[in-house]
Nucleic acid binder design. Structure first.
Length: 690
DNA sequence: CAGCGATTGAA
DNA sequence: TCAATCGCT
């Protein structure tokens, strides 16, 4: 009765319900499957892979100290790899912890179906959230649509989040002589050294190794380091969190995000430890401490909410949640995009942030808001481009969190920032970096500029610039876009958007035609070619190249030249055929009025599934789970074996929410045309064994 | 010190 | 925008 424990983004032995279930059930095969191609658009970027590599090594060593080891597999299809492992080991059970991004939801559901069909008992657990998304609803049992209400509810749930589980004391390895007859695969026990039959995973190529070497100076992946980071934070910066959070440059953040992303530490543990501090400080009457805890927990809450949104709106990483935004005329300008990436926009705070991001894979939360809001509001570039760049460069890249962040910044959420608000980086600079230290650190060319001018060098007198060795437009750019120009351009764009929205609405109500947004998606953007930092590039100027507006919702740029076209045939075939099948069923451009349309779509159960180009229905929770999930009494059950699946896209969302049907054409045809539009450079060239 | 408009800052 | 806080009378 051996079992497979399938590790994914839960690379820890403590508070790991799937691992514990496996240990209870008998001998364990701990497995990690590396199948980046499965992630489609969002394969991990360079720094993310660097982290994963080290984290896996540490997980392996802690598993070894407990008596087993980590079996790693290179794969292009996790589910068939699991099946293969089942066959070679004779395991009869599979345990894993839930993930909530759309790709994992689909994959995990399939894993469960396929393995169950092969006679394997599959159980899955919550290890990533305080509460499962389907447990947090408003008084009418509907999902929340704003963060504050959601978080309020989380903090006032009738039951506390589960307390963290202790790590197992010992793990009986599936690879033990005792089990030898039960699997056909070769195994080795040499002396005391346990050898697993693993694939050697390659996470970086030679080029990347050089860039990655620096990362190790600042970061230590792995669960034990995550624990250290947590303790350090709780006993140190936490109490000042509220006071310090507006400084760009102080090391007062928790630095937990990459650890949390890979599940090296469980958020339940973080939550419990932080809450204990809060109780302590509350007793001492330490108001500032309490306030700090509330703020910090709120950021944990945002992480929860990002999963919540992703679960309830599986397209939130690529489509605005507010419907009218699909009519926003984004500016498609590769020059802007490049200047932003290189930190050459002419706004010191933005540029410093972008240089730091490139150099370290890290950015303070405040600065993330600054650079992304500049990207969306001043440059008016499509937010998904920026999100994709973050994805490729951030050490803590996290699809759900980043989608939430960018949607918030872009004003595409019901409770997001106002769309027409432009933050001025000059003023933000003096707020977050009053002495200019942050700018000077990351922009050496401005190092000698006095603080008075550090955040707006374009206003500085010529003599000051000369003394500081700065020649604007030469060794530091002039502002790429003036704030006033950006403001009026934004106003124009917004009124265009509302006009388009209104005429589309009218068209739909008259039953004459679809809105613009649904029909014009077939022309791909000319995507930026290369994300490499090229320092000697001529800086972008005020007289930027002519810009184009596009009225469809944006697509994500391919960051590289797609030398890889064609290699995806297999998976894109799958997507293509199922996408076509589903399109046939969608009442896309039929002449029906809005109400009818809504009804049809609400009835169409596998709608979400179609949106995702699935070839199996997933819209309703599958029968065996539905009892556990729909009756609130058994919902909490931690060992529920519940694989998260969507409920049908709810009609419960406010009118202004984008209806799930719009954009379906955009997405599927986008995939058809650009099956590998997200390839990361060098990705395919990594030779993998197995 | 209440009452008011102004200011500030917000995932 | 909107709510909380500030600062003035």
């Amino acid at each position: 009765m051996s079992s497979i424990v399938w590790f994914r983004r839960d690379l820890r032995v403590e508070d790991n319900p799937a691992l514990l279930a496996g240990v209870r059930a008998g001998p364990v095969f701990a497995v990690f499957i590396w199948a980046p191609e499965e992630e489609g658009h969002y394969q991990p970027g360079r720094v993310s892979r660097w982290w994963l590599k080290h984290s896996l090594a540490l997980l392996d060593s802690s598993l070894r100290s407990l008596g087993t080891c980590l079996i790693t597999k290179r794969s292009t299809d996790s589910v068939s790899s699991l099946l293969q492992i089942v066959k070679s080991t004779g395991a009869t059970q599979l345990f894993f912890n839930h993930l909530y991004d759309p790709i994992s939801l689909v994959r995990d559901h399939r894993a469960k179906e396929v393995l169950t069909a092969h006679g394997v008992a599959v159980r899955s657990f919550n290890a990533d959230l305080l509460y499962e998304p389907w447990d947090v609803n408003d008084d009418n049992g509907r999902p929340f649509t704003t963060f504050n209400a959601f978080w309020e509810k989380c903090l006032n749930m009738p039951f506390d989040p589960e307390a963290p589980l202790l790590p197992p004391k010992r793990i009986t390895s599936g690879y033990s002589p005792l089990n030898a007859p039960s699997f056909r695969h070769a195994y080795l026990v040499m002396g005391d050294v346990l050898t697993c039959t693993t694939d050697v995973l390659v996470f970086e190529d030679e080029l990347e190794k050089g860039s990655n070497a620096l990362l190790a100076r600042a970061w230590s992946p792995g669960w034990s380091n995550a624990d250290k980071a947590l303790t350090t934070f709780i006993n140190g910066p936490l109490i000042e969190y509220s006071k310090n959070r507006r400084k760009a440059d102080s090391a007062t953040t928790s630095f937990l995000s990459p650890h949390l992303h890979f599940g090296e530490v469980s958020v339940r543990k973080v939550f419990h430890l932080v809450r204990m501090k809060q109780v302590l400080w509350a007793n001492e009457g330490n108001k500032a401490g309490e306030e700090s805890v509330n703020l910090f927990l709120k950021s944990i809450g945002l992480r929860e909410y990002s999963r919540y949104l992703s679960f309830n709106h599986p397209y939130s990483h690529e489509r605005p949640l507010l419907g009218h935004l699909k009519f926003f005329p984004w500016v498609v300008n590769e020059g802007y995009f490049k200047a932003w990436r290189q930190g050459r926009t002419g706004y010191p705070l933005v540029d410093a942030g972008m240089r730091e991001l490139w150099a370290t894979g890290w950015l303070h939360d405040r600065i993330r808001v600054v650079v992304s809001s500049f990207f969306v509001k001043v440059l008016q570039l499509p937010w998904r481009w920026g999100m994709k760049y973050f994805w490729d460069t951030l050490l803590d890249a996290d699809l759900e969190s980043d989608a939430l962040g960018w949607q918030y910044i872009s004003g595409t959420l019901p409770d997001g920032r106002e769309f027409d608000r432009i933050d001025n980086p000059q003023f933000e600079g003096y707020k977050f970096d009053p002495n200019g230290e942050y700018v000077r650190r990351w922009l050496p060319e401005l190092a000698r500029l006095p603080t008075d001018w550090i955040h707006h060098p374009w206003n500085a007198p010529e003599s000051v610039l000369q003394a500081a060795g700065i020649e604007l437009g030469s060794n530091y750019p002039l502002p790429i876009v003036g704030i006033d120009a950006a403001k009026s351009r934004l106003q124009e764009a917004l009124s265009e958007m509302w006009q388009l929205e209104a005429s589309s609405r009218a068209a739909i109500e008259n039953g004459t035609e679809e809105g613009l947004g649904d029909s014009s998606e077939s022309v791909p953007f000319a995507f930026p070619q290369d994300i490499q930092m090229e320092e000697n590039i001529e800086p972008a100027r005020n007289n930027a190249p002519a810009t184009t507006r596009r009225y469809e919702d944006q697509m994500v740029p391919s960051i590289t030249s797609s030398l890889l076209r064609g290699e995806h045939e297999e998976s894109s075939l799958y997507l293509r055929s199922s996408a076509e099948d589903s399109r046939a069923e969608v009442p896309g451009t039929v002449n029906i009025n809005r109400e009818q349309r809504r009804d049809i779509l609400n009835q169409a159960i596998p709608e979400t599934a179609r949106n995702l180009q699935l070839n199996f229905p997933i819209g309703l929770r599958n029968a065996e789970d539905s009892t556990a999930e729909s009756s609130s009494s058994s919902r909490r059950e931690r060992d529920g074996g519940v694989v998260p699946v969507w409920s049908p896209p709810s009609s419960s969302y406010p009118e202004q929410f984008i209806s799930e049907e719009s954009g379906i054409g955009a997405s599927s045809s986008f995939l058809q045309g650009h099956p590998q539009s997200h390839q990361i450079i060098n990705w395919r060239r990594l030779s993998q064994t197995g």
